[in-house]
Design a protein around this nucleic acid. Sequence first.
DNA 1: TAGATTGTTAATCGATTAACAATC
DNA 2: TAGATTGTTAATCGATTAACAATC
Lengths: 206, 206
Amino acid sequence: MAKNDIPDIIIGRLPIYLRALRHMQAEAKLTTSSQELGSTVGISAAQIRKDLSQFGEFGKQGTGYDIAFLVNKLRGILKIERVWDVAVVGMGDMGHALARYQGFTDRGFRVAMVFDNDPAKIGGQVENYVVLDTRDIVTSIRQSGIKVAMLCVPALAAQEVTNLLVEAGVKAILNYAPLSLSVPPGVRVQYLDPSIGLQRMTYYLD
Amino acid sequence: MAKNDIPDIIIGRLPIYLRALRHMQAEAKLTTSSQELGSTVGISAAQIRKDLSQFGEFGKQGTGYDIAFLVNKLRGILKIERVWDVAVVGMGDMGHALARYQGFTDRGFRVAMVFDNDPAKIGGQVENYVVLDTRDIVTSIRQSGIKVAMLCVPALAAQEVTNLLVEAGVKAILNYAPLSLSVPPGVRVQYLDPSIGLQRMTYYLD
DNA sequence: TAGATTGTTAATCGATTAACAATC
DNA sequence: TAGATTGTTAATCGATTAACAATC
């Protein structure tokens, strides 16, 4: 299928383009060029044109891209013209921060459900959510049809909880736990371990 | 210099290898192979051997790699045999979570200083830290010699605060704010916007 | 020794860049 | 029209993989 023709690395840049375009919109700009967009995100103009050309012809010679039009195209490509319900598992500090995070609004996501395995937290409130029991992940998530989860449990529990999420039908996991997860084909994981991010930079320090 | 010879993409994988090796150590394993390490992190054995060979010959034919030895080599390469002091800017939920995060221990980092611009928070305590005024970033960070910062302020303030961090001598920024930062050459940024992580996966969902 | 696994080379594969005709 | 900028092609550059001699 066509889906397989688009390299993962290109898909990974589209949200960056979209974020920058939204920022331009917020500044009431109407059009931009591959040159301008490239310099704000730190990517060459040629690459941006090549990336976008995978999906259609969105620009006009001489004038560039209509920002609102391109935003809508990218939202469609990334399937975020809809709003995805997301489950947050692990109500420690990080899970708590994600449950309260305002930044998902208008970016295609909504926290719909939160879980923890601590009896002291289960049944309690976090933000507007009643904390559900991790043991009920499979039934709750399967029933709600949720496909996206954010994982904020300790490393030792992460693989076990991942298995439950997969069993529940989750296909996309944003993983804050500090380990590589094992998932079957068809399930995607994005890693956000803060220590890894830092360790990728210290090599370049003195 | 030799530094420039090693591709960034290889440096980016080393922390992943290290994390997996640490996990093996915690399970009291003594040796591993490129095959085994590769299958736990989802990278080919050939690539792992090639990556490691950039820095020396760390393995033994027939037996593989001594885990403790390789861990030490990687820690040295990544410059995390020392402990880096880190400043956290922005004491919202995310900054708060990072200030309290236990996962930096033994990974080369220690939160040393936290900042916010809210008068209601300045002078107060978060974890063991007194919240400092964002306006004092340049003097405080410069004086302490801190080179690494985590940025958790709202998008609108992020570039401005980044400029202060750069002025203060920070060379590595872990950015949680949802925007691309502009920094001079020699300053590195790693991006951890959760929405971007999620948007990189929805493309593949139905 | 026989089996296993490294480090490295050469081949393959994929991504980026440069250049430009098309055209707004 | 003249200037600007796209979409695309071909060339370049870089990363990954396969294969294997070396050797533990």
